[in-house]
Design a protein around this nucleic acid. Sequence first.
RNA 1: GCGCGCGUAGCUCAGUUGGAUAGAGCGUCGGCCUCCGGAGCCGAAGGUCGUGGGUUCGAGUCCCGCCGCGCGCACCA
Length: 540
Amino acid sequence: MTAAEQIRAELVRAARSLGAPEDVDPLLERPRETSHGDWATNLAMVLAKPLRSKPRDIADRLREAIDLERAGVSRIEVAGPGFMNFWLDAGRIASGLSEIISADERYGQSDAGGGKVVNVEFVSANPTGPLHVGHGRQAALGDAISTLLETTGWKVTREFYYNDAGVQIDNLARSVDARLSELDGNSSEIPEGGYHGEYIRELAERYKTDNEGMSVREFAVRELRREQDLDLQAFGVRFDKYFLESSLYTDGMVEETVRLLIASGKTYEHDGALWLRTTDFGDDKDRVMRKSDGTYTYFLPDVAYHVTKWKRGFHRAIDVQGADHHSTVTRVRAGLKALEMGMSGEYPEYVLHQMVTVMKHGEEVKISKRAGSYVTVRDLVNEVGRDAVRYFFLMRKSDSQLIFNVDLAASQSEENPIYYIQMAHARMCGIFRVGEIDPASVSADGAPLEVLSEPEEQELIKALLDFPALVESAAETLEPHRIATYLLETARVAHLWYHKHHVLEQAEDITRARLALARGAQIVLRNGMRILGITSPERM
RNA sequence: GCGCGCGUAGCUCAGUUGGAUAGAGCGUCGGCCUCCGGAGCCGAAGGUCGUGGGUUCGAGUCCCGCCGCGCGCACCA
């Protein structure tokens, strides 16, 4: 039982004894201000109405009714309008280290997800060019969200959806064709909607020398998919499933979905096209699903694709996409809802991220897809390393725009948050290295943890003990940036402690206890970085 | 024009789902350091939380109106 749970249980007992409603569920939180104790509750204010008394009076009576020992606290104060502040005793705090060390790599894990399956789809780039920064943000986000969910007891399938069937692939083939005919000495223009990047020229050259009898289209898609796979590999992202849009046509899923939608009665014919009444589901206008020329708009295969997710058993699905795809959300959900297959209006869940701006040498690197000039994931990885790229993509919440400062990410100094965090971990490792101690042999059991009474020690332990609750709530809200923020703060506290208090060559009981703390910090920093997909080097 | 997101210190951003005196890093200014790695540490200055209303014991957080920025508004994807 954690300290908070222990306080809560006793608080409930005390509240019931004062006549509080049966479902009383006190909220415990960590005050920002240390002078407000280790834990605080606003319970007395919440009970003011049902008990028809002043919050402060209720708080005083609660305080009287609470058994300090059973709550595991040393002191309770009533403050402000009726807050109750709790102080844990130093021994109670330090004893939390035992749990961290014995759990080791499992520390921070939970079974909140109950082993249920969830599908996380991300990147899903069209095979029409290299992966750019936006895809990078998505790759980092999707992978971290997946790991967060795994850490909290979900069974995750990481999925990549290839749009290999649409008009954009035709445009790709025609663009390569144009470059091919240029190679043959004929002047030729990249077609409208085509791709202008230098890689198209390179594709044409490779096709000319070694096309293995493939069509331009097949060759280009194969090569670009291979390139993207290499980029993802360099980034350390691995997918469990690659889903091809084209398969939705070959296996009849698209046709099937159209039939079902028509049967649902939510469609109508107008101007020779087939429309879906998405306005019934909150859209601002109805949408065409089959054009008058008989081909489908993109959102129909999207609906069909999500039907397959549902049918494959994923009753929870998360799509990570750029915010520029925002308009698709209502449409896809409307299509799925119209099918009445039992999905809620929230299926699938979307994590949309805002755009990335790349700054280099103090200037914005302009991105022009049309001219084919943009920063690729591979450029970034080559320039600043995988860990820094991942951390920078994850340090901001997804719905705010992100400025990627290449110079900062590349710098090997304390200004660079990723170095700062990794350095904190490496320092903990350094203690064991210098002391010639196997960290795995360090145990908190039997160690005199009560000697860890310095303010920096108490602060560090408290930070470490916050980790599991943080992981759980970050997983719930699908917000990996909270792990990033936490790591930076915890690294700060660890540096501070490291600087002020020595571990080795102290009195024996102090060294023993501090080794346990160093071990705890090492474990938490490492586990946190692992969630973000970042390595935790033992020396830097 | 409509929809979504954002607006917090000079800069880049957090803010525990409505709590107490709004925080961090960088930058600036001042100071410290014979150390398990100086890739260090301490301190200070710096704020009308875009703005005007509303909701309530209590608002950076929720609601409404404005202003600014980004993205999206096809029988494109």
